[in-house]
Amino acid sequence: MDNGVLKRLRVVGGIAAVVGALALGGCGSPAEEPAEPAAGPQSLEELIAAAEAEGELTWYTGTPPSTIEKVVEAFEATYDIRVNATRLPSGDIAQRFQAEIAADNVQVDVMSTVDQGFFGDMNDAGNLASLPDLARGEVDDAQFLLGDYGVVVTVGVPAFGYNTSVMGDFTLDTWQDLLDERVDGQLILVDPRGSQAWAQMWHVALNHPDLGPDFLEKVGQQGHQVVNSGAPGAELLGAGEGGVLVANIPGVFDAAKQAGAPIEYMVPEDPFYGIFTWAVVTADAPHPNAAALFLNFLASEEGSQVYNTADRGISPLGDLDGTWPTPAGGIEQPPTPDELSASLEEILTLLQIR
């Protein structure tokens, strides 16, 4: 679909060019001083006025393009504010933001990613802003708040996809189906180092009594190829250049099916885990009021429904029309950054990802 949002959306696959561009940017005219957010409590009306005076914001996110498009369209239809969105894997978001800090040329206002540890480090270093109450929207459950600086905008649902043209009558119903001999040589694994979403998934499997290290080792023995993020994995799966993808989210597979790709998917249970995507505002945001209003929108019922209907995610506000239903047993807190750090090397070794 060729429209203004998609023309503005930048999908960046590598980080080397970004660093060079930032260095060049620093050699030109100095960046404008970021606007100061109004002190003290603000009404939503005052925040809207201040945000629309700024007129735009920049958002770095790992959200799928189709979801970005719908979120941006809904926000821009509500407010006279332009959203400049750049899609990157979570690891590249971290590198890009740190490069901007090093170049004293922070361009991003809002970041959303699954990397809780990175956000914690950036907050400790003074690089993230404390969120005013308005920026948290309607999210008030402590499970979905990260200190005073982050708010969950979606709880993603991991899904395993398979190409029916490639795999024939094979179906995916459980984790154990990944060990089927028909998967050997057809498996596409998303590198857990590219996004903590998949590191978390394998951490949960590694520590589950019915799966554990033996299961991961057997998955690793299945012939496989490795991709750096879910997006190229979905492209390979749709093109028939692999038969099974671990993993992506339902929204991506649904979009591929609607476009005619011979893809089916299943959401693994027992164990089930949710992928928490956190949103933050940078301390030196060029457009801090627009950033706060954007988070307010994402954390409102309207914005959360747009986001999670497109993404097929679980809303932190509960079950909304079109969103993925909250599991009966609730949503467990994701593994801590320290837990992930301790298990990542074992996960990579067992899966034979080098």
Rank of each mutant, 00 (worst) to 15 (best):
G126P: 11
N123E: 06
N163I: 03
A142D: 14
A159T: 13
D133V: 05
D141S: 14
L172I: 05
N123I: 03
D140G: 13
L146A: 08
F119Y: 04
D169Y: 00
F118I: 05
T113C: 12
V152M: 10
Y162M: 09
S112P: 09
G150S: 10
A129K: 09
P132D: 10
G147Q: 06
L146I: 05
S130F: 03
D148W: 08
V166Q: 07
G161W: 04
N163T: 05
G120M: 06
G156A: 04
G168F: 00
D124S: 08
V157T: 09
T171C: 02
D141W: 09
D141Y: 12
V155S: 14
Q143W: 04
A159E: 07
D121P: 03
G137W: 09
D140R: 10
T164M: 01
P158V: 08
Y149V: 10
L146F: 03
Y162V: 03
D121V: 01
L146Q: 12
Y162A: 00
G150N: 08
V155G: 13
M111G: 09
D140S: 14
F170T: 01
F144M: 14
D169G: 03
F118E: 08
L145H: 13
M167V: 01
V157R: 07
F144A: 14
V166N: 10
E138H: 13
D169K: 03
P132N: 13
P132M: 06
G117C: 09
V153E: 13
G168W: 01
T154C: 00
V110K: 05
A159R: 05
F170V: 02
G156K: 11
A125M: 03
A129W: 03
M122I: 00
V152F: 11
N127H: 14
D133M: 07
V151F: 09
D140A: 14
R136F: 14
L128H: 06
T164I: 01
N127Y: 07
Y162D: 00
S165M: 00
G126Y: 06
G120N: 05
A142H: 11
D148G: 11
G137Q: 08
P132I: 04
A129T: 13
V155R: 13
F144S: 14
D141A: 14
T154S: 15
Q143T: 15
P158I: 02
V110Y: 11
L134N: 12
D169W: 00
V157K: 05
L128N: 04
L145W: 04
V139L: 12
L131D: 10
D140V: 11
Q116R: 04
D121G: 07
V166M: 06
V155I: 11
G137E: 11
E138K: 15
G126V: 08
V153D: 15
G150D: 11
G168E: 02
N127L: 06
V110Q: 07
N127T: 01
V139G: 11
R136T: 15
V153F: 14
F119W: 01
V152L: 07
G147T: 04
T164C: 01
A142W: 13
G117H: 02
N163M: 03
Y149Q: 08
